[in-house]
Amino acid sequence: MEKRVTFKGRWLPLLLVLPQIAITAIFFFYPAGQAIWQSLFIPDPFGLSMRWVGLGNFEFLLSDPYYRASFVTTAVFSILVTLVSMGVALYLAVLADRLIKGSGTYRTLLIWPYAVAPAVAGVLWLFMFNTRVGVVTWYLGLLGYDWNHVLNEGEAMGLVVVASAWGRISYNFLFFLAGLQAIPKSVIEAAAIDGAHFWTRFRTIVFPLLSPTTFFLMVVNIIYAFFETFGVIHTITSGGPQQATTILVYKVYSDGFVGQDLGSSAAQSVILLLIVSVLTVVQFKYIERRVHY
């Protein structure tokens, strides 16, 4: 039944995949291999000497309660970013899907935030919530709420989550909208004739049929929250207050580039690599089973 294109011989297919293999080898396998190698040493910043410590860097890291706490921070942060960005995107997509007039305009407007670089998004949000001149802070003050993410850990986490999720909503919105439009109208109409209300239709038909999109977005968003939110965190909180918003990637940066501790930084990259591999395997093994294609 399956349609397959097959090549005769073996050189042509090899030649065709060669560029991809070369790119993966140069930009992924080589640096990843170097990170693993470096994680076994304590080098001096200038690369003048390296001291072999075996798994010493990993021992040092895992015995540090602040590093262990960073795992929890990362988990909380990633789950919140994924939930917020996907939830809002799905809501907006369902609304836009029902629009008859002007849906093009809405779509275009909703896609804009995606074009904003994370660091810029961070600065924008920081400006709105600035404890001294922020617009939102000022309105909250009128309501009697004293906003201070510089010292309040929960508020700092909330702010970086919202700022990270915001740019991501557009991307998720696009995929959800495309997914919704791919659902055959006849199925939904049939259910409507049977007397199913909007919410019932959504729960029993639309959402299950949307599951491949949801699954794909979940994988992509978690990876985004893990790796690409650096700019937002760096501009808004620099990991503070205390260590409330120090996610694993931010710690790699602060140990490697602020502390010049390349050994520990490399060991952390290796740990991150492991986490992401495990996450991906878990997602495909257990969650994909519930996905209806």
Partner: peptide, 10 residues
């Protein structure tokens, strides 16, 4: 802890 790391590195 960081000073000990630095001592080892240097």
């Amino acid at each position: 802890a960081l000073l000990r790391r630095f001592e080892q590195a240097s």
